[in-house]
Write a protein that binds this DNA or RNA. Structure first.
Length: 891
RNA sequence: GGGCAACUAGCUCAGCUGGUGAGAGCGUCUCCCUUACAAGGAGAAGGUCGCUGGUUCGAGUCCAGCGUUGCCCACCA
């Protein structure tokens, strides 16, 4: 920690308005936190560090709500909690150069000025890319600060910075030398728009209806009479010119006898064989599939199995190549129409129908996939995947919520090799050179400079692979490149492996799985111990996406409601891993809750100001030695809230944690304790009450700080300025998370009765139509022992004089206590009400008796459960008796 | 085709290791500007926890089957 800590901002110390105004304090507080070094891990600590890497946002534009959920909602909550637990906490910032997406975005910008990347050339486009990065990186970093993320900004990271380029080069070379990387001609997804390949994961399937043509392939030789025609169904007739076979399912009785015979590919008149392959679906079309290895992934695989040649008739721009013969020249759509009319002219189209099928499109731009066969770099998965599967299988890495592990296994166990070449310009260059004279592939040694001549044939006519690497190739290394790898840095030693990886479940395959594989490969150890996967945030009920134009900027929401309200609203009450939606209601509610806390604090601070003597020799963070019931009660409940909060956060139940905390702060501290505190504050000795109020507030601020850092810090500064605190920390950020004290469950049980009685009296008052501001008289009879000490408090919350004993007036029974309010009785109406209550009460008695009388219950259920049920039955029976008595009295 | 999950109040959703009048927010109704807060307070109404079986003394919670919905993966031409 910094040796001298600057003074906290005056704005936070002075804000005293009736409503909390986030804009007045947030920027100042963040700046103070950052400048004071609170977000740097304590290097001197011997505690085990907590390490979490930011899921590096793409430098493609501003942050959206999904980022706010992950970064501000979950990660910062988790980081702040660990920091408060005394763990040296490293929440590592960084951004991603975002390869294809970023280049696509910048190209769109250029297109607005009518410029294409080809016109500009590689150098200039890269200049534009860097300009974009230089513009958006600070903006993104600013937005992370607005969210309140406690990132260690002294350790900035960017995937394209020189140190990362060196790391990627090293990694590539090592993978290559170890045999995990190979180069091969294989079919890949090609984007005509982006002019690059992409991986299976980046293919989106969309439903589309297209004409399905049934095309007859004439027999090559004479066939016996009655031999059926071979008819294939296709949506892509333009690829017929690249057909090299027709395939049937081996078990298809219709065609079995014809396997091995030859047909003529229409128009090109090529003789091809009929083959049998399991991949053919006999129920589709006629059960005969045309095989086009050059332009279909399935066909490519089938072709490989049968040793068929590959014919490519479509080029990278989507134009028909000379190999297409009479179709050469036009684009693929025009060629399709041309082919259809040619086939029609020859009478080869036997049928045409509409078919709805799934077609692949590039998820970034929506362009229909064009499978092409190209020479590409591939990462072999056969040896990288098994250790990653094992790490999760044997629990070295746990994924929360746990069911996501099944999803992980399902994918990893069917994983396919990963194509990592991209034909764009923005990205990590590939440290591989090719020799024009002997075709050698040259990958230099790790620390060697770029090669200048071919080691095989000594030619100096070599060139570097012009492709760049998939973005995820570099982000897979994030857990260790951020720590200085491949150098053996102190950071790498201290902070690897990390503790937790928090991200959305939608990038498990893209990123999480690959980090695990590469961590194990390069570091020989898992990259993190746990993974927490949050759900997706929707706006209203619609998924947020750029194409739908409903991307919400968190910045506007922060300006309007404050970062705390946004952070709280995004997480409160959301089940682990579940998708959620952010609505105006949720935001308003969160803001209202923040305001509630603010006003509890204003009340407490005013009381402290009026009773300064309470803090001579005592501080807000010291648990007061309370005597009074209500003080002891709220202290016990505070301890319950502490224990509950810790338990829920440890269990990754963040939504529950906030919901439970809100219930405590609003429903118990504000609605009950603050009200009970008022009379004793007016009386002579307020010391105990003020101290209790301050202490409860101090605890609540700590408990809530991980989610609502700004408001809690503002209040804490104001509180501690008045009361002092025993802990030396200058800020709530680096204060200790509370430990729960001993609870008084007997007292809590008495207060549960108390709360029931209060509600019953208030209800009775309203039913009787009493003037809300008038004082009433209430008498309690029956089993009043547990609340005998709390009569004054009951009176305080119900504006009543409360006595024990028989009284007059309108009555009801709660638990086994008769409650009577001095008011005029409406005999008929009251009788009706009491009869209704009696019926319900009898039903409850019946249920209790049934449960207790059931065979096996008394023997098999835990003793406490049986005891509790017996007590409940007794109370219910007494309530029935009292209600009956009351009804009789009405007669 | 394979996998994962969801189905709880009018709406949006909690309910974690099974324990018995099923919770919240919003909305609805009644009342209240009580000097911390009207961005508030008090009270109320509202649910056969998708369906059918099973396990258990006991099931919203566990198991099986079914139905509906969503998502992911996959070589639907």
């Amino acid at each position: 920690m910094a040796t001298t800590i600057p003074a906290p901002p005056a704005s936070a110390l002075e804000l005293a308005e009736k409503n909390f105004r986030p804009a007045a304090v947030e920027a100042d507080l963040y700046e103070w936190w950052e400048r004071s070094g609170f977000f740097k891990p304590d290097e001197g600590s011997h505690e085990r560090p907590f390490v979490m890497m930011l899921p590096l946002p793409n430098v493609t534009g501003d942050l959206h709500l999904g980022h706010a959920l992950g970064f501000g909602g979950y990660e910062d909550l988790i980081a702040r909690w660990h920091r408060m637990r005394g763990e040296p906490t490293l929440y590592m910032p960084g951004t991603d150069h975002a390869g294809i997406i970023a280049q696509y975005v910048v190209e769109q910008e250029l297109a607005k000025e009518g410029i294409t990347r080809q016109q500009l050339g590689r150098e200039k486009v890269l200049e534009e890319m860097w300009k974009w990065m230089d513009h958006y990186r600070p903006r993104i970093e600013k937005q992370l600060r607005l969210l309140g993320c406690s990132l260690d900004w002294s350790r900035p990271n960017f995937t394209m910075e020189p140190s990362k380029q060196r790391a990627v080069r090293t990694h590539f070379i090592r993978l290559y030398k170890r045999g995990h990387l190979y180069r091969d001609d294989r079919i890949v997804h090609w984007c005509l728009q982006c002019q690059t390949t992409y991986s299976d994961l980046e293919v989106k399937h969309v439903e589309r209806t297209d004409p399905l043509y049934y095309v007859r392939y004439p027999w090559a030789g004479a066939m016996p009479a009655g031999t059926p025609d071979v008819v294939v169904a296709t949506t892509r007739p333009e690829t017929i010119v690249a057909d090299v076979a027709v395939a049937m399912h081996p078990d298809d009785e219709r065609w079995k006898a014809l396997v091995g015979k030859e047909v003529l590919v229409p128009i090109v008149e090529r003789r091809v064989r009929i083959i049998a392959d399991e991949a053919v679906d006999p129920s589709f079309g006629t059960g005969a599939l045309k095989i086009t290895p050059g332009h279909d992934a399935t066909d490519f695989e089938i072709g490989k199995r049968h040793g068929l040649p590959v014919i490519s008739v479509i080029d990278k721009r989507g134009m028909m190549t000379p190999a297409a013969g009479s179709l050469a020249g036009p684009d693929r759509d025009t060629a399709r129409a041309m082919m259809v009319s040619k086939l029609r002219a020859k009478g080869l189209i036997v049928r045409e129908e509409q078919v709805t099928h799934a077609i692949g499109v590039h998820e970034r731009c929506g362009t229909v996939d064009e499978p092409l066969v190209m020479k590409q770099w591939w990462v072999r998965m056969d040896r990288l995947a098994p250790p990653a599967i094992a790490a999760v299988r044997d629990g070295r890495i746990t994924i929360h919520p746990r069911y996501q592990e099944k999803v992980f296994f399902n994918w990893m166990e069917n994983i396919r090799d990963w194509p990592v070449s991209r034909q764009i310009w923005w990205g990590h260059s590939i440290p591989a050179w090719f020799c024009r004279d002997c075709d050698a592939v040259i990958v230099p040694d790790e620390d060697a400079p770029d090669p200048t001549r071919c080691p095989k044939c000594r030619s100096d006519d070599i060139y570097q692979d012009p492709d760049v690497l998939d973005t995820w190739f570099s982000s897979a290394l994030w857990p260790f490149t951020t720590l200085g790898w491949p150098d053996e840095t102190p950071d790498l030693r201290r902070y690897y492996p990390g503790s937790l990886l928090e991200t959305g479940y939608d990038i498990v395959f893209f990123w999480v799985a690959r980090m695990i594989m590469m961590g194990l490969e390069e570091m020989g150890d898992i990259p993190f111990h746990s993974v927490y996967l949050h759900g997706l945030v929707r706006v209203g009920s619609v998924k947020m996406s750029k194409s739908l134009g409903n991307v919400v900027s968190p910045v506007g929401l922060i300006e309007e409601h404050g970062a705390d309200a946004l952070r709280f609203a995004l997480v409160n009450g959301v089940a682990a891993g579940a998708d959620s939606q952010l609505s105006q209601d949720r935001l308003d509610h969160a803001r209202n809750f923040a305001n509630k806390l603010w006003n509890i604090s204003r009340f407490a601070l005013r009381q402290i100001d009026e009773h300064p003597e309470a803090f001579h020799g005592h501080t807000a963070d010291q648990r007061p030695q309370a005597m009074g019931d209500e003080a002891r009660w709220i202290l016990s409940r505070t301890d319950a809230a502490i224990a509950e909060s810790s338990r829920l956060i440890e269990g990754y139940l963040f939504g529950e944690y906030l919901a439970a905390l809100e219930g405590f702060v609003w429903g118990e501290l504000a609605d009950i304790y603050v009200e009970l505190a008022k009379p004793s504050l007016r009386s002579g000795d307020a010391t105990e009450t003020v101290r209790t109020l301050a202490y409860a507030l101090d605890r609540v601020l700590r408990l809530l700080h991980p989610s609502m850092p700004f408001i809690t810090e503002t209040i804490a500064l104001q509180l501690w300025q008045r009361t002092g605190k025993s802990e030396p920390s200058a800020s709530l950020v680096v204060s200790r998370w509370p430990e729960p004290g001993a609870r008084d469950s007997a007292l809590e049980e008495r207060f549960a009765v108390f709360v029931d009685v209060v509600r019953t009296i208030r209800n009775l008052r309203q039913q009787a139509g009493l003037d809300p501001s008038a004082r009433a008289r209430v008498s309690l009879a029956g089993e009043t022992a547990s609340i005998r000490e709390l009569l004054g408090q009951i009176g305080e919350l119900t504006r009543s004089e409360v006595t024990v004993g028989r009284g007059e007036g309108t009555a009801t029974v709660v638990r086994a206590i008769e409650v009577r309010l001095a008011a005029k009785r409406d005999a008929a109406g009251e009788r009706e009400r009491l009869e209704r209550e009696l019926a319900l009460a009898r039903d409850l008695v019946r249920r209790s008796r049934e449960l207790l009388g059931r065979e096996g219950f008394a023997e098999k259920a835990p003793k406490e459960v049986v005891e509790k049920e017996r007590a409940k039955l007794a109370e219910r029976e007494e309530r029935v008796r009292l209600l009956e008595q009351e009804i009789r009295r009405l007669e």
